[in-house]
Design a protein around this nucleic acid. Structure first.
Lengths: 195, 195
DNA sequence: TCCGTTCCATACAGCAGTGTACGGAAAACC
DNA sequence: GGTTTTCCGTACACTGCTGTATGGAACGGA
């Protein structure tokens, strides 16, 4: 790792990494400078504020964890297969470094810079889930409700994994239990229980 | 509000209140002293550390939001009625000041003083849910899994409420949707779908 | 190679919070 | 009412972070 000059993207990615490990509080200029082997002088050339860095890192998160994810799903043709893959991907175990990011972001929902991004991401994800359910034949309103329920379920598992990591595999590792769970979130076609 | 001397409990309750509003970060000695109309001199008489205050506040949370809650539920005789009340109570809308507390705690799960308390609370709540499902006739393992699922659902709604408060009522205010949701978490007696 | 632009290190000021030392006020006790 | 114990205010030192000012290094084009 030769010592080269840093770009705005270098700082943004470093902030994102720190965010994944230590939450939003870890997005701090001084510590990041140490990691990058530079000083704050570099940072304040590329950014005006610590806040600007936070925004950049959050928008990177928005891109990677939502837009890219959705784009990947869109490559799956069959709607049912796509929803199944999506849910499975969302509920599956993650690398430990990913566990604390979303909880930390939600915990700062009241923050004026976090709030708007989180809002967009939440609405976008639920919106996409709604689309998926509609493509399976659900009417709009029911699909929306189902989307909200599914997203709440996702959030719940993410948080539970953070709160007590060893409890989650009790369910997710059990094939039957996992199928049961996914089954509740996946409407069987021709089911009249779509409310 | 006459100016009287402060007890350890005064500080603990003030810390708990601050925690409810601003998350764990709001448990700070200097600001709390201002609120209480005192100085840090008082604080360091009753506590050794800021950490000690955090522990006290978290244990108060454990008592109020878990033990007292469970004790209240135990006063309900009929197991099905009890579970329904519990779920309804857990998923119902809360006062705004309560919205950010649990997300903030979960976000600090890696913290050495938060971790153990959060572990205990999580295990205790899931354990109690498991009991409830068992009293409804589910075998131990299935009840445990159902308890985990129900608790994850609870966490999900709490977080969603913090992330995008206006989306939650879309479901919880709709009587039919709410019944459907509670229905998924409430086994119908004599249902063979208990896995 | 020279020069202008881009980038960064150093040094400084400032803020918010923690924890300690110590003197003195306020209760409590007899 | 004096003494002892309990409690609290004040002042200080220290830490970790933000943001600014400025000089100078590194790079790229002519």
């Amino acid at each position: 790792m030769v010592k080269r000059r840093l770009t705005r993207e270098d700082w943004t990615h470093a902030a994102f990494d720190a965010m994944c490990r230590g939450g939003l509080g870890a997005v701090a200029v001084d510590p990041l400078a140490k990691v990058l082997g530079a000083t704050r002088g570099s940072f304040y050339w590329h950014f005006t504020d610590r806040e600007a860095l936070l925004v950049a890192a959050l928008e990177l998160w928005e891109q990677l964890a939502t837009e890219d994810m959705i784009a990947a799903m869109e490559r799956i043709r069959d709607p049912l297969d796509r929803l199944r893959t999506l849910l499975h991907e969302a509920l599956r175990d993650r690398r430990p470094s990913d566990v604390y990011l979303e909880p930390s972001i939600v915990a700062h929902a009241h923050d004026p810079v976090v709030g708007p991004v989180l809002r967009r991401v939440t609405e976008r994800r639920i919106g996409y889930l709604t689309e998926c359910y509609q493509q399976l034949g659900m009417p709009a309103e029911a699909a929306r409700r189902q989307g909200v329920v599914a997203y709440a379920a996702y959030l719940g598992w993410v948080e539970l994994r953070a709160a007590a990591p060893d409890i989650v595999p009790e369910v997710t590792r059990d094939r039957a239990a996992m199928d049961h769970l996914l089954g509740q979130l996946t409407p069987r076609l021709g089911n009249e229980d779509l409310t």
